[in-house]
């Protein structure tokens, strides 16, 4: 089984989000970039398939040379090949277009993305790929088993879970549940050495139009001071929620 895992580099979840150049550019100063958490759950599931039935894993990232650290981490935790499409990932349609043109030329049985990246929260790359490559897609997967070329999948729906099955090839977008938090891998010495030696394949980007452009950013406005309510006077809380906030 050949698996492609599409990974993006995002600011670590503890990052302070700030902007520079008159609020038009994300401030990378002091920000650590990591594999998008949703992608990492998918990657870790792929590694599980590798350990269980010799799947071969290619990780792909659309990014400039500064994202190679996350590709090396992916190799260190078990990916066999790493591909970087050399371009600034400007919008989802652009990224999906770049990935799609690579994926079209290589026959993968399973393509994994994250359900969304935690920076732009687009959540559309896998859907676009499905349409481009004309294969099925399942969004927000929380479980994936594959036996004899057939996938058994659970996906999140609002208020529950849906169970599906599908023959490969297939695209899924992953999240926690595909593997548990405790299954996430910390690279060991051997992995780190392998990753250091591995040649990352760099591909030049195609000419693809963006469909959206972020022209400015703003931070949420300061909220009003918190109102402290005495634990002995919960009636006050109920009255405030009822009369002031009008939420009960």
């Amino acid at each position: 089984m050949k698996i492609a895992v599409c990974i993006s580099a995002v600011p670590d979840t503890t990052s302070k989000i700030n902007f520079v150049e008159n609020n038009t550019v994300f401030d990378r100063e002091g920000v650590q970039f990591v594999i998008n958490p949703n992608d990492e759950f998918g990657l870790t599931r792929a590694v599980w398939f590798k350990e269980k039935n010799q799947a071969e894993i290619t990780v792909i990232n659309v990014g400039l040379s500064d994202t190679e650290a996350i590709l090396r981490k992916a190799i260190a935790i078990g990916a066999d090949h790493a591909v970087r499409i050399n371009a600034n990932p400007t919008d989802s349609a652009y990224v999906a277009g770049q990935l799609g043109s690579y994926l079209k030329q290589h026959n993968f049985d399973l393509i994994i993305t994250g359900k969304e990246s935690i920076d732009f929260n687009g959540g559309m790359v896998h859907g676009m790929l499905a349409e481009m490559l004309n294969i099925e897609v399942v969004h927000a997967c929380t479980s994936l088993e594959i036996e004899n070329n057939k996938a058994e999948i659970a996906r999140e729906i609002d208020g529950g879970t849906e169970h599906l099955s599908c023959d490969l090839p297939l695209i899924i977008s992953g999240q926690k549940g595909l593997v548990e938090e405790s299954d996430l891998k910390i690279p060991n010495m051997r992995g780190i050495m392998t990753a250091r030696k591995k040649v990352i394949e760099v591909i030049e980007a195609e000419d693809i139009d963006c469909k959206t452009a972020d022209t400015a950013f703003e931070k949420p406005s300061k909220k009003a001071e918190v109102e402290l309510i005495d634990a002995e006077n919960l009636d006050e809380l109920i009255q405030k929620l009822h009369k002031e906030a009008k939420v009960i």
Binding site: A93, G122, G123, M124, G127, E131, V137, I157, D158, T212
Partner: peptide, 23 residues
């Protein structure tokens, strides 16, 4: 912004060559 709407809209955007943003 339901899970199903997000599931559908990436596919729809590609189909219509549309600009799509959520949130």
């Amino acid at each position: 912004s339901s899970t199903n709407a997000k599931y559908m809209s990436g596919i729809l955007a590609q189909k219509l060559q549309a600009s799509y943003t959520n949130n």
